[in-house]
């Protein structure tokens, strides 16, 4: 709600004549390109790091050793000593 208020009353609160371009399209273009320029590098860097990490995980995951299925099963109560 605060964000909506900030967005809608900003023009009124800032009573300065040069604060707004008369062209609504131009104002919107600045907002759009700001969003593009801000998020594009973050997405690129984030994506690159995520991809590298995934690659690193794949390289680092320990080699799987074949373990006989019997070892993994519950062998039940220990046999009694004789």
């Amino acid at each position: 709600m605060g964000a909506v208020a900030v967005g809608s009353v900003a023009d009124l609160a800032r009573a300065c004549p040069s604060c707004a371009s008369p062209l609504e399209e131009n104002r919107q273009a600045f907002v759009d390109t700001t969003i593009l320029l801000t998020f594009l590098p973050l997405i690129m860097i984030g994506g690159f790091i995520w991809w590298l990490r995934r690659k690193a995980r794949q390289l680092e995951s320990p080699p799987q050793i074949a373990v006989p299925e019997t070892l993994l099963q519950d062998i039940g109560p220990l046999p009694k000593k004789q």
Binding site: V6, G7, D11, S21, R27, F30, V31, T34, T38
Partner: peptide, 19 residues
């Protein structure tokens, strides 16, 4: 990357962006 337009508060940028 989110702060640069604070150099332009009096340059006539969109007040919504200034906020």
């Amino acid at each position: 990357f989110f702060v640069w337009a604070h150099h332009q508060f009096v340059a006539g940028i969109d007040p919504r962006m200034a906020n």
